[in-house]
């Protein structure tokens, strides 16, 4: 299921603002790639270009190439809606649909795309909740509102919702930054489990988290306010955290700035 992502010469803009400049990288399948860097350096923007969510914001646009195996996501014939079915996303703040039950939240992506068969839905909902390590906690109250769960459970519900549509790639934008350490641990365990099936990209401000969960780490930086964000380097996580090529990476990781 997992696919390789190859980005080359990618620029992203918000109206006249050049947000990220000339990014090229390869993201390996069945692995976790972490994006780290100071606030405003374009990590989240870059993440959102990988499933064409960037262009949802009025005035935002992208230049460059993103290849998912051998398909160009930005080819003119590609439907952005179809891209997002293949490349799923989990957001910083848990955002279950407030009008829907736990069951309906997980089934939302399928139902809204026309899957109606109850037996099929039941099966996928259970599978997805199992996959998100949430099934045992909610199996007796699937009909209860999703917004009634705790923050950590809501975030796992959002992950279950994302995997229910069976994507190939999972993008996570600081998925633990609104959670307590125990919920964070639960999500990190889950990431470790999911990587056997998906290509996972995670943005995080927590360097320990990047070191714990990721196989490869990309460091982004910004030359100054108003400047576009750039990719400084990407390498195996162990190498980035022990012996980075670039001075800026070392300074950031050792806490000399940022």
């Amino acid at each position: 299921m997992a696919k390789r992502i190859e980005v080359s010469g990618l620029h992203a803009y918000y109206g006249g603002v050049h947000a990220i400049e000339d990014i090229s990288m390869t993201i390996e399948p069945r692995s976790v790639t972490a994006f780290i860097g100071p606030s405003g350096c374009g990590k989240s923007t870059f993440l959102r270009t990988l499933n064409r969510m960037h262009e949802v914001i009025p005035g935002a646009r992208v230049e460059g190439k993103v290849m998912l195996d051998d398909e160009d996501l930005y080819a003119s014939s590609v439907d952005p809606v179809a891209v997002r079915r293949v490349v799923g996303m989990v957001f910083q703040r848990p955002n279950p649909f407030p009008t829907m039950s736990i069951y309906d939240n997980v089934a939302a992506g399928l139902k809204l795309n026309g899957v109606r068969r109850k037996s099929q839905l039941d099966e996928i909902v259970e599978e997805s909740l199992q996959g998100a390590n949430l099934w045992n906690e909610v199996k007796d109250r699937l009909g209860k509102p999703g917004a009634g769960l705790s923050g950590g459970q809501q975030q796992r519900l959002c992950i279950a919702r994302a995997i229910a549509v069976q994507p190939q790639v999972m993008l996570m934008d600081e998925p633990c930054s609104a959670l307590d350490p125990i919920s964070t641990l639960a999500i990190e365990d889950l990431i470790g489990k999911l990587k056997s099936q998906y290509t996972i990209v995670i943005v995080t401000h927590n360097m320990q988290q990047a070191a714990r969960v990721s196989d490869r780490t990309a460091f982004f930086n910004i030359a100054g306010t108003g400047q576009p964000g750039k990719l400084i380097e990407i390498d195996d996580t162990s190498k980035i955290f022990t012996n980075p090529e670039q001075k800026a990476t070392e300074d950031y990781i050792t806490g000399r700035f940022g």
Binding site: N51, M53, R84, N95, V165
Partner: peptide, 8 residues
């Protein structure tokens, strides 16, 4: 955005 991200 949550909905768009599900390919809806």
């Amino acid at each position: 955005e949550a909905s768009y991200a599900l390919g809806v």
